[in-house]
Computed example of a mutant assay.
Amino acid sequence: MAGRQTAIVTGAGRGIGRAVAELLARDGYRTMLVDVDAEVAEASAAALRSAGLDALGHGLDIRDRMGARALVALLGSVDVLVNNAAIASDMVAVMNLTQERLREMMDINLRGTFTLSQEVIAAMPSGGRIVNIASRGYLGGAGASHYVASKAGVVGLTRAMAVELRWDGINVNCVAPGMVDTRMMASFTDEMRQKLARREPRGHAASPGELADVIAFLASPEAVFVNGQVLLTDGGKNLGIPPL
């Protein structure tokens, strides 16, 4: 890499975001770990610094435009943005979904991704890379219409941004994971985990590190000719799954 590039990873206090941030830092990026929990972000960054890596922690609600603007001003220039921060939700039938729950999901998962992206793009040079994290859930699913809609929005946003920004030399891609072993699975019973594992072609959920490898590739200069793509990383489950 010619010179040290800067990367922002959101939702980087734990899980996929934390794994991506560590991998980018090990690849030589000056890495900003962003999380809504500032203490968690700084603790994760401190752990990376103790390993000799260039990492900073920063607390930010990605919906906060002025906070996003201040973060970008602090860094000066941003070469890579990984929009990983998001929320999931308990299952709820579409007829029982409230306006409030729908609004919160769309507000964080879609508007938050849009807001931070817009601020970062203003400070992103030609050759910049944006990787949005959606979910295989954007394909559809019962009991999660608000989550599905928010992640389908991220996919659409990715494609639209890629069409516009390609002329500025900025690539925008999207990763759509299947089941990943993060704290979002913490509330699952052992029985539910076993049932879900039987639906996985690999027999188990992906680890955050396995997803980080894919995301880091799309964030790399080597992926210069990959643009506007939605990469399903679910072990092939999107090809058809057996019933529970």
Rank of each mutant, 00 (worst) to 15 (best):
A47R: 03
A134G: 10
V72N: 04
Q118V: 03
D35F: 00
V94K: 10
M106G: 15
D37P: 13
V40G: 01
A144F: 10
I130L: 04
G112I: 02
A46H: 11
G141A: 13
E119S: 09
R30L: 14
E119G: 08
A46Q: 08
E42D: 08
L97F: 06
S145W: 07
A122Q: 15
A134E: 01
H58F: 12
M32P: 04
M124H: 14
A73T: 14
S50F: 08
V78M: 10
Q118I: 03
V131Q: 04
E39T: 13
A123T: 06
E42V: 12
A93N: 09
S135M: 11
S126R: 13
S135G: 11
V92L: 07
L53Q: 00
Y29K: 10
M95Q: 12
G140N: 11
A73R: 15
L102Q: 01
G140M: 05
T98N: 05
N83P: 04
L75C: 06
A41P: 09
N109F: 04
V82L: 06
M95S: 15
G137A: 12
I133C: 03
G143H: 10
G57Y: 05
D54R: 10
G76Y: 09
M91L: 14
A93Y: 07
G141I: 04
S145R: 01
S126H: 15
Y29R: 08
L102A: 01
H146K: 13
I121Q: 11
L60I: 13
I133W: 00
S50I: 10
A43T: 14
I87T: 13
